[in-house]
Design a protein around this nucleic acid. Sequence first.
DNA 1: GTCTTCTGATTAATCGATTTATCAGCGGAG
DNA 2: CTCCGCTGATAAATCGATTAATCAGAAGAC
Lengths: 316, 316
Amino acid sequence: MASIKEIALAAGVSTATVSNALTGKGRVSAQVIDRVRAQADALGYRPSNVARALKTGQTGTLGLVMPDLTNPLFPRMAQTLTMAAEQRGLGLLIADSHGDEVEQCEAIRRLVDRSVDGIVVVPQKGTTLEPSSVPMAVINTASDPQNTVCADHAGGGMLIGRHVADIGHRDVVLLGADPVSEVQQDRITGFSRGLMPNIKKQVFWGELGLRQLVPSIRNGATAVLTTSDLLALRVLSELIRAQMDVPRDVSVTGFDDMNFAAIMHPALTTVAQDVSAIAEHALDVLTAKIQGQTGEVPGATIPMRLVTRASTAIPK
Amino acid sequence: MASIKEIALAAGVSTATVSNALTGKGRVSAQVIDRVRAQADALGYRPSNVARALKTGQTGTLGLVMPDLTNPLFPRMAQTLTMAAEQRGLGLLIADSHGDEVEQCEAIRRLVDRSVDGIVVVPQKGTTLEPSSVPMAVINTASDPQNTVCADHAGGGMLIGRHVADIGHRDVVLLGADPVSEVQQDRITGFSRGLMPNIKKQVFWGELGLRQLVPSIRNGATAVLTTSDLLALRVLSELIRAQMDVPRDVSVTGFDDMNFAAIMHPALTTVAQDVSAIAEHALDVLTAKIQGQTGEVPGATIPMRLVTRASTAIPK
DNA sequence: GTCTTCTGATTAATCGATTTATCAGCGGAG
DNA sequence: CTCCGCTGATAAATCGATTAATCAGAAGAC
């Protein structure tokens, strides 16, 4: 309600002096600063950052574009980014690109129209971003050339692969949900790399893959490595329906360590992303870009952590 | 980049006329409107809503305050609200009140400082909101006097209770996570109301309650009604550990129909919120308040929908 | 004593839109 | 012919801050 003008009037100085006193810029005597500060909080002054934004061209607000939130990891990312932004005194406007590349562009345009200072994008599977007027940070996967920071999906896959190999599996099924997703491709690649070369590997995708599962196991496979916890859950249902026990008859792994992974039965062996490290890094890069650092930053890759639980065991 | 001034120059008119032509206010001849529009999109003009906000006092941005996002329903609400706001041409700033009543106030203050036009609050369990200078809409539960709109938690509980009673259960355990939560209290109340009066009911809470479960079942209980899907998942693990089969030995129900409820094993009987109806109503009320409707709107209650799946069955 | 320098503050422009008050011109009424 | 009313457009104020330019006065240099 109270503006800089009222404070100026009350303190008997000019608005410029009030601004300088409150922001610490310019030259103001100590006593005047005190007087202005006193009047400011006597009047319950809160600066209008709309006005400030108009003059300075910075709104102190970032945008976040997320793919459709069916994947429960995204909300976690959104929340972590919100908190990380908050700590830097920034707001976060969230936009949703519900599964559509066109909508993704639209979402970015909307955010730009709302004059955000920068945008964090978790891109739609298999899309490329057109360059925009505002700085961007991309959270995707190492194999995306536009990538700014991401979890080490391939590395996480390797951890899983090596774990399964270590405990003795020699015939393994790799299951992904959608081959269009670069992230899932990288995870599958990681699996293969983590398993020894002499291990038999079969890669399946989607619904079709789910149906190929049981035959493969009857044919000798002893482990199913999936590219998401949700997918692992579906695999579990499928196996139970086929009267198979996890982990006695077959080991199953997930990816991302979602909230239910620890409490489901059997508890799921999976790998966890360091979401907060990713968020922090994304904002670091983005704020640097906003402040005009021009140098191209190489994409950072945050290691994943193996979480071994009950769903993997030594093959019989 | 291009401002109203450049358009004015290019079209040979004043800035006032440009503004009038583009917004459809004031008196402008048809030809001038055409000329201005042509220049506007020739220059790729995008209005600065920072400037607009400064003059009009409306930013076209709403705030959303959520409790800590451990509950996976909240992200869904956040996403739905984001989309609903988007459709109305509004932005949504999300703030998190990580589990703390003080933080909740802080979050609201931060949003007000960012000059949002109104705030949607999903309050922290067992807290009250202090009145603020900006319009608010509260999404909580019917028994909260500040409530604006909510799912019919008691009604949902009733649906569950009645379903379980209908299929023949006569000794039932009601399990909640935290008695401080008004929402969970209402759900439990609903359970009781849905079950016939002659049915034996025991109410348990939290970790302690989880440990009382198996004894109660050994003692004759045939169904466990929980106040959340996540809790139901934990119950399932507990029962499997005790060598009990769901639903053969005991029926289990959840609440909210979260993403994993349909694909876990056994698939979970639960009730679903009409999240999008709730979001729409919240925004309707909020925008009405912003436009100055002063009349107190009575809290609306959106019915829930029973989803029967494999986790409930006729008791043996 | 004059000239420079530095300090502490003010004046006024500015950001980009909206909006009120004003104005020029034109047609019709009297 | 003059006055009124209407239309289409403009000038200028305004929102609330930031900031470049300016200025008055005191202190220090020579």
